[in-house]
Amino acid sequence: MTWEQIVKILVLCSALLYYASAALYIRKNKVFAYIVNAIAWLSNASVVAINWVHNGYVPFISMYQVLTFLGVCFTLAYLYIIYMYKYNWTGIYFSLCSGLSLTGVFFMDFTVAWNRPPALQSVWFIPHVFSYMLSYSLAAVAFVMTIIWFFDKKKREQLEGAVYRLICISFPFMTAGMLLGALWADQVWGDFWSWDLKENWSLITWLLYTLFLHSRRNAKLKKYTMLFSVLGFLALVMTFVGVNLVGGGSSMHAYN
């Protein structure tokens, strides 16, 4: 059995277990949901570990590697959310998003071994990607909860507060991802900012989440808050995967 086949099986198991865990959260079977979530996370983390050991560097090079790492981030973020705010009820959203992230992996190139070009051999590489993945995981969950907010009028207050808290945690990491990337870009390309397609969309995403945070603090603008959450996440998807699909070849950030 090749490494590609092993990771494919592990990714499939992780995705299915994350979905099973989400189903168990819906059925309010919390203990089993936690157990299944933990097994899914271990399976997911083992894919990251295989990629890491096989390549000898932190596996953030390809879209496949980054998406499998994103799956790991959801549960880590969930643990922090439980610890900070006792939001155990958000488990379903975190499990669902982890499952979706790993489902996305199936559309990517599953090659385990990736060459790391000289431009990616930088001290900024790991904090840049790690910050972004942590931030994206929280923003994705906030987006799902925003969509529920539009339809479920009974839970609006609870969901609105949770969305705000998630974005409040996501935003500094998104800022860190963007600015550490700028410091790296200055070292490797000689510019903090190159107006590259991916950079532009990341700035648009950041601005939309900035608008979310500001509008919530102004009585007249508060009605637009959830709209900015939706727009922010759509821009985030464009930054993360859209740019690579639409104009990846021309982007300085092009990778597979």
Partner: peptide, 26 residues
Amino acid sequence: HMKISVIIMAAITAVLMILTIISPSS
């Protein structure tokens, strides 16, 4: 001043989005 700041930020975001969509290359 937050309202003015939000309006300017929204305008910058809109301009950025339009220019990014219409510009085919870096």
